[in-house]
């Protein structure tokens, strides 16, 4: 890279940057560059002003993509969709013609969709849409993953709770727990979590308030799915460090495992650690090996 902007280039700075705005180049393009894009890339590599902008945009894009994709999927959505389409199967059997004679084709292999599908007013579809009866629709579907932890906390001060109490009393299902209505009040997730592939928040965050304590913890269900490994389902409990009587140390895999027990006949492993003033307790309904795998990924250097 040189430190001047070549005036004689086939593309100028603005054109080069605009062109490169439409492809992912992180760190290499995710698709072959055509002649125009190659020229733009060549320009940017040789122009220090463009390169600086390009690098910052790329960084910004990576964060935008991460936050853009981090959305909680409502619990039960899959089942609801299955039920709706199954109901439709029944309807189709009753009145196949009425539905199939909508005439227009939908795109296959990316061909444009013909614009006029049958309107659904008064159809099963409209009725189904009106009948939305999700149990958790009131919960917003976003979890704030802002890397710096742009979060607020319920300022509920009370007697600190012991880790032992949290280990024993934290529920493993959301039943009866109040839903977090304002997700901006959630603490940041463990720093490495947004970067762990296959790790997702799979339900709706709730508040959990241990008995005898005025302090609420956030209760976040998650799932880790990775190739060739058994999926891990669990709950992440987070509390401000000052509200925990005996907060665990900073994250070290060996010291993170707190407890291995059985609850309701199933194995239960708990790991705990502290990060930037927040205590994280991770509950997994499985043998310790599962949570050890997760902890290794959670280690700051591993992710």
């Amino acid at each position: 890279m040189t430190s001047f902007c070549p005036e004689s280039d086939a593309v100028n700075c603005a054109v080069a940057l605009e062109r490169l705005d439409c492809v992912w180049i992180d760190p290499v393009p995710d698709e072959p560059l055509d002649a125009d894009l190659s020229a733009a890339m060549e320009h940017v590599r040789q122009c220090s002003a463009c390169w600086t902008t390009f690098e910052k945009r790329r960084e910004c894009d990576a964060r935008l993509a991460m936050i853009m994709q981090t959305i909680l999927v409502p619990v039960g959505l899959r089942e609801q969709l299955l039920a709706r389409t199954a109901e439709m199967s029944v309807d189709l059997n009753i009145n196949t013609d009425a539905i199939l004679k909508t005439g227009n084709d939908l795109p296959v292999n990316g061909k444009p969709l013909v614009e006029k599908l049958g309107h659904r007013e008064g159809t099963y579809e409209a009725a189904l849409l009106r009948r939305r009866a999700w149990t958790i629709t009131t919960a917003a579907a976003m979890l704030v993953f802002a890397a710096s932890g742009s979060w607020l906390w319920h300022a509920m001060q009370g007697r600190p709770t012991s880790v032992q109490t949290l280990c024993e009393l934290t529920p493993l299902t959301a039943e009866g727990l109040p839903i977090v209505q304002d997700l901006s009040q959630l603490p940041a997730l463990p720093q490495s979590w947004p970067r762990i592939k296959g790790l997702k928040i799979i339900g709706v965050p709730c508040w959990f308030q241990p008995p005898g304590s005025k302090t609420a913890a956030s209760w976040i269900p998650f799932e880790l799915r990775q190739p060739k490994s058994k999926p891990i389902h669990g709950v992440l409990l987070t509390m401000l460090r000052e509200n925990v009587l005996d907060p665990p140390s900073e994250l070290m895999v060996q010291s993170a495992l707190l407890k291995y027990a059985h609850r309701a006949g199933k194995p239960l492993s708990v790991a705990g650690w502290s990060e930037q003033g927040v205590v994280y307790l991770c509950f997994v309904n499985d043998e310790p090996a599962a949570i050890e795998r997760l902890m290794k990924l959670t280690m700051p250097t591993a992710a």
Partner: peptide, 25 residues
């Protein structure tokens, strides 16, 4: 919005169900 996203997802799968014969691959 959550509600609109649920609706849109549902609309998509209902139409997919209806037009599934067009999906060849």
């Amino acid at each position: 919005s959550t509600a609109d996203a649920e609706d849109l997802t549902q609309q998509t799968f209902l139409t997919a169900h209806q037009k599934l014969h067009q999906l060849r691959e």
